[in-house]
């Protein structure tokens, strides 16, 4: 991997949250360099509070960088959301006043997609995400994991070229998580989109990604980028392979130290 056409490039990307009302400014991210290859599946792991969601915000153009530059398909992003990006947020972002169906169709209707096409894509997404029986339900009637699936479906129907996911499976049980991982892999192969997946689950990163960026404690930088070398048509069964254990072990050897730092205990206890 890591060859081919660059889809997204980050150069010296830094984000400092200005201190409001007499507080210290927070240096949340960077400086950080990264190149996402078109069509790759990239995963980001890092200790809590290291700036992963901040990275997603600047990538999506939701927040501007304090320093550095980001290019998406050759065009600079600077605090403006470009066309062709889909985001699934860490928090539940389903609209509580819309049914599952209307939530999923929301983006399509915003872009005035023709009704028949909306139907077709929404139906497809509904069955893909296992939400067929809940078309007319409201988010309040769904579990946390189901709501997150609504958000994923809402993003996928727009067929974005770059998909950013911030811990999308955070509220799912381990089994469903593995199966959803399979679905995500299948979608990724079908749509040939570039995926950036933020996760705190090392096994999830190891199983899904072509490359895994391991972030340091805040301010987040990449300590190492681990290549998994999985074949393109992989699925969750690779967790049985010996390489899988090696990769997760490698991720943890970095993250153990960083997570302790994030907790404010620089010296590892015994």
């Amino acid at each position: 991997m890591a060859k081919g056409e660059a889809h997204v490039t980050l150069q010296g990307v830094t984000r400092v949250y200005p201190g409001v009302a007499g507080q210290q400014p927070v240096h949340a991210l960077g400086p950080l360099d990264l190149e996402l290859v078109k069509g790759e599946f990239f995963s980001v792991v890092g200790p809590s509070g290291c700036g992963k969601s901040t990275l997603l915000d600047v990538l999506a153009g939701l927040a501007s960088v304090t320093d550095g530059a980001i290019r998406f398909e050759g065009v600079p992003i600077h605090g403006r959301v470009p066309d062709g990006i889909g985001v699934v947020f860490q928090e539940d972002a389903s609209f509580p006043w819309l049914t599952v169906e209307d939530n999923i169709a929301f983006g399509l209707r915003q872009n005035s997609v023709e009704a028949g096409e909306v139907r077709r894509r929404v139906d497809h997404a509904l069955s893909l995400m296992g939400l067929k029986d809940f078309i007319r339900a409201y988010p309040a009637q769904l579990s946390g994991g189901m709501r997150q699936r609504v958000c994923i479906a809402r993003t996928l129907v727009l067929e974005p070229r770059l998909i950013l996911l911030d811990e999308p499976f955070g509220s799912l049980d381990q089994q469903t998580r593995l199966l959803m991982g399979d679905e995500l892999l299948r979608l990724w192969r079908e749509t040939e989109s570039t995926v950036l997946l933020i996760t705190h689950a090392l096994d999830e990163a190891a199983m899904l990604a072509d490359r895994i960026g391991v972030m340091s404690a805040r301010p987040g930088r990449f300590l190492e980028i681990v290549e998994t070398g999985w074949p393109q048509d992989r699925d969750s069964r690779i967790v049985a392979r010996p390489e899988f254990g090696r990769i997760t072990g490698r991720l943890w050897s970095h993250l153990r130290v960083e997570s302790l730092k994030a907790l404010g205990q620089d010296r590892p206890p015994l």
Binding site: D57, D83, G86, E91, A93, F106, Q110
Partner: peptide
């Protein structure tokens, strides 16, 4: 209004009025 919903509106590139 949850911040994630406002961010979603921006991802859909909705204007202020919308």
């Amino acid at each position: 209004i949850p911040r994630a919903l406002l961010k979603t509106a921006r991802i859909y590139r909705m204007g202020r009025v919308r």
